[in-house]
Design a protein around this nucleic acid. Structure first.
Length: 522
DNA sequence: CTTAGGG
DNA sequence: CCCTAAG
């Protein structure tokens, strides 16, 4: 006769954990990936796209005139002010595959040196203003937002998503995107380790305040950003010959978004916006390139450096480089393992996102010379890597691009509330009856493995509320009524496992006391 | 990452 | 549901 491990308790049987889990302290994994995470952060933004450009240098003798006009210079409206920062063209700079630091940046292209006399260009940081015309973003973010909306009992996912893989899976929980530092996790690290694509669980998209990007309010006189609203407050007394600089275009290569066909245009827009914001909301700094070489000495003057009015159009370039420490882990280099870089290319002009017919459809394209309109069929050369994938079902709930934490400026939105159905409750109860109340991960695996939107924390929380529900009078209960039968089982299971837990705790204490008598004496 | 609990 | 300290 086969030995039965399970102790029967009337129903499916409460089951003492066959193999008591090792004390948490024994599961030492932290240190290793903790280190990795830091590492990742530092090199993440390598993939920042590049903008290249031409510069149009010319002596600007009319500067003084400009200053004469009104006491208050014209408000520099985007598009109308020649000192604005227009972005529309980008080329990708070579990216290193190592974590050795930012290898690329955003190079401003198609710029026109028109006026540097004020020592500061009125460059509108993309984040602070309305986003500039970003035509093609490619940051090699390797984000894939999967469909979390599968019901628990539907068809099973591919193997990688099942039991054994569960632990290895990047993360099923929905919270990861925001607690980047809080719980020291780096999904990407796991990706690397396990070869999984990073999968960001669906982030429901409720209507919560999200201050991902703050648009500068022109009426706000308080400008602490360092970017002048109108460029007026800069010292304009320079007598030097001036160069006008007009940066006209900006483009981030290789930016991929995957989104189901069923998604709405608005959600598509949102996705793109989120992704773009995610890229730019990090703190960037500007680098200056002349003749392809980076100029590091900040103290040199333009003329000393060689930036003058007779520069060639494409001699000068700017790069936007991420602050290493604020890089989103989602941009970790590991992501690149999944990303194929195309060699640096010359920039194209305005390129709009192109939808693919694939499902989930992918917005992705490489920048090519004359890539104005790519037909839907012309996808052969496209990489399929996706930046953002939007769940197919429930397309209305647009997945949210990861939000790295930024100086508290942004907060990820809360997931939408999804009340547990009776069947879910039943599954939960059943699992808890067998596994107990201290093994939520196992419960998840057992009963909710396919419910991507239910994390083990959710299950734990649900159990908590179930216990509470079971204790209150039926009149006080809200929501879809849970069969009393289930609630009874909840109470029973709860009582049983609580008792069990207490017993174990006691045993543990005794063991400790017995085994360390000397310690006690000391 | 998981648990456990408070918010 | 979220947040997080602990393990």
């Amino acid at each position: 006769m086969v030995l039965q491990k399970r102790l029967e308790y009337g129903f499916n049987g409460y089951q003492v954990p066959p193999t008591p889990r090792a004390p948490r302290s024994a599961r030492k994994r932290v240190s290793s990936w903790k280190k990795n995470e830091d590492h990742n952060r530092m090199c993440a933004f390598d993939l920042l796209a590049t903008v290249a450009g031409k510069l149009l240098l010319e002596v600007d003798e009319s500067v003084d005139k400009t200053e004469n006009g009104s006491s208050k210079p014209n408000v520099c409206d985007q598009g109308s002010c020649n000192k604005s920062f227009f972005v529309s063209e980008i080329i990708k700079s070579p990216v290193t595959d190592t974590c050795s630091g930012p290898a690329s940046g955003i190079t401003i292209s198609d710029c026109k040196i028109e006026d540097i006399n004020r020592k500061q260009m009125n460059i509108d940081p993309p984040v602070n203003r309305k986003l500039p015309v970003v035509n093609n973003v490619d940051c090699n973010l390797n984000l894939v937002i999967r469909d979390d909306d599968e019901k628990s009992y539907g068809p099973t996912q591919p193997d990688t998503l099942n039991n054994k893989a569960f632990r290895a899976r990047p993360r099923i929980g929905d919270r990861r995107i925001r607690r980047l530092s809080a719980s020291k996790q780096c999904d990407v690290y796991r990706n690397k380790k396990n070869g999984y694509k990073y999968q960001r669980p669906l982030r429901d998209y409720p209507f919560k305040k999200r201050r991902l990007y703050q648009l500068d309010n022109p009426s706000n006189s308080d400008n602490k950003s360092g970017f002048l609203e109108d460029g007026s407050s800069l010292d304009a007394t320079s007598q030097d010959s001036h160069v006008k600089l007009k940066i006209k275009s900006f483009r981030v290569p290789e930016f991929f978004i995957e989104i189901p066909e069923t998604a709405t245009i608005s959600s598509l827009k949102r996705t793109v916006m989120e992704a773009v914001t995610a890229i730019f909301s990090g703190e960037l700094h500007v680098g200056v390139m002349l003749q392809g070489k980076r100029i590091r000495d900040d103290d040199k003057t333009l003329s000393q450096t060689g930036i003058c009015h007779d520069n060639k159009l494409d001699a000068l370039g700017f790069t936007l480089e991420p602050n290493e420490f604020q890089v989103s882990p989602f941009l970790c280099p590991e992501s690149r393992s999944l990303t194929r870089y195309s060699p640096p290319q010359t920039v194209a002009n305005e390129v709009a996102f192109q939808q693919q017919a694939d499902s989930p459809m992918t917005i992705s394209r490489n920048i090519t010379e004359s890539d104005h309109e790519m037909s839907v069929d012309d996808r052969s050369g496209l990489d399929s890597r996706a930046l953002v994938t939007v769940p197919d079902s429930n397309a209305r709930e647009l997945a949210v691009v990861p939000v790295r934490k930024l100086k508290g400026a942004e907060v990820a939105q809360r997931r939408i509330r999804r009340p547990f159905s009776v069947s879910e409750v039943e599954a939960l109860v059943e699992a808890v009856e067998k596994l107990g109340t201290g093994r939520w991960r196992d419960v998840k695996l057992r009963a909710f493995d396919d419910a991507k939107h239910r994390t083990y924390v959710d299950l734990k929380d649900k159990w908590k509320t179930l216990v509470h529900t079971a204790r209150i009078s039926p009149q006080q209960r809200r929501g879809e009524p849970v069969p009393q039968e289930l609630l009874d089982r909840v109470l029973i299971a709860h009582g049983y496992w609580s008792h069990q837990q207490a017993k174990n705790q006691l045993k543990l204490n005794h063991h400790q006391l017995d085994s360390t008598p000397t310690c006690r004496l000391l």
